[in-house]
Design a protein around this nucleic acid. Structure first.
Lengths: 350, 350
DNA sequence: TTGAATAACGCAAACGTTTGCACTAGAGTA
DNA sequence: TACTCTAGTGCAAACGTTTGCGTTATTCAA
């Protein structure tokens, strides 16, 4: 077959015309300054000879690579799969491709990943692993490369974001538990240097306050990370200091899973003894032994919107004011929550 | 900050030396032909002025992009996350980055994704979505770009692969079921144009034969895809024509999940009425209502090995004989399999 | 018939690297 | 002293595109 890649010049020589003409004939925008039949002949020859544009040469010349970078915190967390899918789905429509990197929830790792991506010349970055104060946004700004934040946002303003209404989500969760009769509700928070953890926790105390329920400090414990392991440890200390709690809200589905295992270590059952609600509605939750009641976020749509936003920002003639799209969460009721049982007297367990 | 990217020439002018000297001083291999103190000065200046190599220019010049493409069949299938992670882990050590694409289990989609990747100039491709006869390997061969197949392989030889011993895995599964007393064992196969489906099915009948158990045709039904939905449909027809079966082996964990739902639609229970074993040991299986007995494959290691193999093949001075690494599976016994209950008389269910 | 206007195309520079080759100066040898 | 060698550096071409500008041929108006 073709040992060597066929280039514009190859085409030009074959057709006895100049490479500039070939280039223009192939380009959608500038093909109109070329006579129609030349365009046709060029494109036919390109097809036959298997011409593929050399991305490196294009990038070097025009300064755009038609590629972007995606950074997620954790590849093993299944929530990000549909987000990435959403991103891809719009990227494909515009001839863009994506580098995927992950930060392992580590700020400096994220920073160096972004540096690598910038060095690769990506046209923009979708960042799903932000901390509340994050050097990555300054990094991107100083290199004047477009950046959009998904899900996790950053305290400083002036950056495109697509996030979901976390407060509303928590409000729904609390409302649901209150409806079931729960009053002694605990909260397993995530690290408060991550926006979602911070906001969800704040929304929890606020919503409780709105219902005239003050939440005492021991009702809240912070997990060191948004993972199963973090959730398990935090839940252990929570159960130690809250023997009377009947429900807990986890900042995260993964944390909720950790709560489950801590629960069984204490010999408690869910939802009989304690109700649990998570956040994110990660895939395959329906299959779980205790299907987790959780707050669903529109993963795929989040991916789509962020990609659209980024592409818009990459466009040279875009206006320069930042956008912030806010998506609505949804309460998914499963079996991990149940009405609170009021027991006047102690009853021997069977 | 730096509005414009600093280039080799910027450095050269700043130091009053030639760009070629700067280039050589920065390069690890050719810096030895430059006097040590010049090297030091250049590197210091590069550091201070924030020089980053222009990847596009490098790629255009040397013909290598230091990037590869990964193609997986389905982003929502959690098995691929650890594989991708394994790939990344070795890629990072060598300054490589990866484009991630997925084929949705569609041959032509895979083909066009590969074409896009090649056009992007990737140095190699890791292909986890192969069909038994697949145009992608010819495509790569004709462009003489390195390719390694993971998990799913291809009938035609002469291509680097890393796979797991599927036959051994099935043998383990069958052995496990036989130990539990099962004899009437069914098999929900995947599409037979995919190597793993084909091999696993063949291994099933062979292993059964080795135990003097002939498997009748109605004991095998083929799902149209390696998904939950495919498994569910196939399992429905299976149950319709096999009311006496006590165990089934699914070609895939996802298919096994589909089997579960079909099972409950028929009012059957697992593992009481029927045992199920899957394949792949996808993440979070431990959490399931019926924890699935399955064959575990070394995902992460598969990723690592395939990346190593690809990098070796990309290296210009590598020998040119193809390698085939074969990894060992492991039987993971959970609760979806149980001893067969022999009932002489019909007993009313309680 | 002459002029300008337009359409179609060619020329050549440029993007930022790498690298073969030429060049210089100083060291070593005879 | 005159010679060759070599270490260190500069020159310039090349990778494959895109694009501003110059050139030619054709059309249209006067």
């Amino acid at each position: 077959m073709h040992r060597k890649r066929v280039t514009l010049r190859d085409l030009a020589e074959h057709l006895n015309i100049n490479t500039s003409t070939v280039s223009r004939a192939l380009s959608e925008k500038s093909s109109e300054m070329i006579s129609p039949d030349v365009v046709k002949r060029v494109r036919k020859a390109a097809q036959e000879m298997g011409y593929k544009q050399n991305a490196a040469a294009y990038a070097l010349k025009v300064g755009r690579t038609k590629s972007i970078g995606i950074i997620i915190p954790d590849m093993m967390n299944p929530v990000f799969a549909p987000i990435v899918r959403g991103i891809h789905s719009v990227l494909n429509q515009y001839g863009y491709t994506a580098f995927l990197a992950y930060s392992e929830n580590n700020a400096s790792a994220a920073h160096s990943e972004v540096e690598k991506l910038i060095s690769r010349g990506v046209d923009g970055i979708i960042y799903a692993a932000a901390f509340r104060t994050d050097s990555v946004v300054d990094l991107c700004k100083s290199h004047s490369i477009p950046l959009v934040l998904v899900n996790r946002v950053v305290d400083q303003g002036n950056v495109d974001t697509v996030k979901v209404d976390d407060s509303l989500g928590i409000k729904m969760a609390v409302g649901h538990l209150l409806d079931l009769g729960h009053r002694k509700i605990g909260f397993i928070a995530g690290p408060k240097n991550i926006s979602v953890s911070y906001i969800r926790l704040r929304a929890f105390t606020q919503t409780m306050a709105e219902h005239d329920l003050e939440v005492e400090p021991h009702r809240i414990v912070e997990a060191h990370s948004l993972t199963e392991e973090g959730g398990e440890k935090a839940m252990s200390v929570f159960l130690g200091q809250n023997p009377d709690a009947t429900a807990i809200i986890a900042s995260n589905d993964l944390i909720a899973l950790g709560c489950f295992t801590a629960l069984t270590q204490f010999g408690y059952t869910c939802p009989k003894r304690i109700s649990i609600v998570g956040f994110n509605n990660m895939p395959y939750l329906d299959w779980f032994a205790i299907p987790l009641t959780t707050i669903s976020i529109p993963h795929f749509q989040m991916g789509e919107r962020s990609a659209e936003l980024l592409l818009k920002r990459i466009d040279p003639e875009s206006d320069d004011h930042y956008e912030e799209v806010l998506l609505k969460p949804k309460l998914i009721i499963r079996q991990s929550t149940a009405p609170v049982i009021r027991r006047k007297k102690k009853i021997a367990s069977t």
